[in-house]
């Protein structure tokens, strides 16, 4: 088979040594070709654009279908050679997959750029026209600018030749202004706010459970009782006390029927006999739905989302 999409070592057209000029040139060329391709896609008629997208989707999906369903070599050793065309194709699929994954990782990374472009477009317009709540847009721009500036400044230091000393933290004495600034922005603000946002869920859960979790019917009562047992079963102190009580009632006899009423035994039964089969059933349903959705996307049968 062609060496395309196969064998990273020795290096092929798809890669180059890390940090080398060759790699930088290849990245630049790829970027220019990518930009030109996007430009062409904007210029051509929508029917042709649809055809290009369909072809790309079909080929990409087809590769992974072959990768998963075509018989793969078992216990293949690095120096093994294929004995016939079919084995050769199988070897090629296996060798090509990591390269395809790298390409899709690269394309995926561009989605971040797309997100930033979209965000800036919306908020820049709001800011320029001083629309309602333009102050929030200003905060967004200032935050983004600071984070990008100090993030990259810190990144280049850390991945430089003294990066190992910096990784040890401020105690090592290798931190400069940019490291402290980045630390305050990322760990001091951003991460704490994220944790704060998530912790608020507890308050909403309490409020929702109080107002909605009512024994209004037989089904709701069963659900309520089950939830109560499961919640109690993760409270170690309650489990310990309850189970000690059952043990005492059973006179410490491990064969006693009463042992079935230990809280952890009831919870385990609920998990094994009720929860696990239910979730498996749901998973099967979701799996079949995903298969149908995947087929629709792969064969371009999904017409929703407007013209491309």
């Amino acid at each position: 088979m062609l060496p395309i999409f196969a064998d990273l070592d020795p290096h092929t057209i798809w890669n180059a040594p890390s940090g080398s000029i060759e790699l930088v040139i290849k990245c630049m060329v790829a970027l220019l070709l990518g930009a030109a391709f996007v430009g062409i896609c904007f210029a051509i008629p929508s029917q042709l654009r649809r055809f290009i997208i369909f072809t790309a989707t079909f080929v990409s999906g087809g590769f992974y279908i072959l990768f998963y369903y075509f018989p793969a070599p078992i216990a293949r050793q690095p120096l093994d050679q294929p004995r016939n065309v079919l084995e050769g194709f199988s070897f090629w699929l296996t060798d090509a997959q990591p390269i395809i994954a790298t390409i899709s990782n690269t394309i995926g990374s561009f989605l971040i750029g797309l997100g930033i472009y979209s965000l800036m477009r919306v908020h820049l317009r709001k800011l320029m026209k001083k629309q309602k709540d333009w102050g929030y847009s200003l905060v967004l721009f200032v935050s983004m600018l600071l984070m990008v500036t100090f993030g990259y400044w810190d990144y280049f230091d850390r991945f430089g030749k003294d990066g190992a000393a910096m990784a040890a933290g401020p105690a090592g004495g290798a931190w400069h202004f940019q490291q402290y600034a980045n630390d305050i922005l990322f760990d001091g603000f951003f991460q704490q706010m994220e944790a704060g946002m998530f912790s608020m869920v507890a308050f909403y859960i309490l409020s929702a459970a109080y107002r909605a979790f009512r024994a209004r019917s037989i089904e709701a009562t069963i659900l309520l009782a089950t939830a109560l047992v499961v919640m109690l079963s993760v409270m170690g102190a309650v489990v310990y006390q309850w189970d000690e009580g059952i043990k005492a009632l059973a006179h410490n006899d491990p064969g006693s029927f009463l042992n079935n009423f230990k809280l952890d035994v009831i919870a385990a039964w609920l998990k094994d006999a009720v929860q696990t089969p239910s979730i498996r059933g749901i998973d099967f349903g979701v799996g079949i739905g995903l298969l149908a959705m995947g087929l629709r996307l792969w064969l371009n049968l999904d017409k929703t989302g407007g013209a491309v």
């Binding site: 990273l8 992974y64 997959q97 990591p98 390269i99 395809i100 989605l111």
Partner: peptide
């Protein structure tokens, strides 16, 4: 970013 493809690649050839 491509978790599915990357995980399959890790299983296929972790060094690559």
């Amino acid at each position: 970013p491509n978790g599915e493809g990357q995980t399959a690649a890790v299983n296929t050839n972790v060094r690559a």
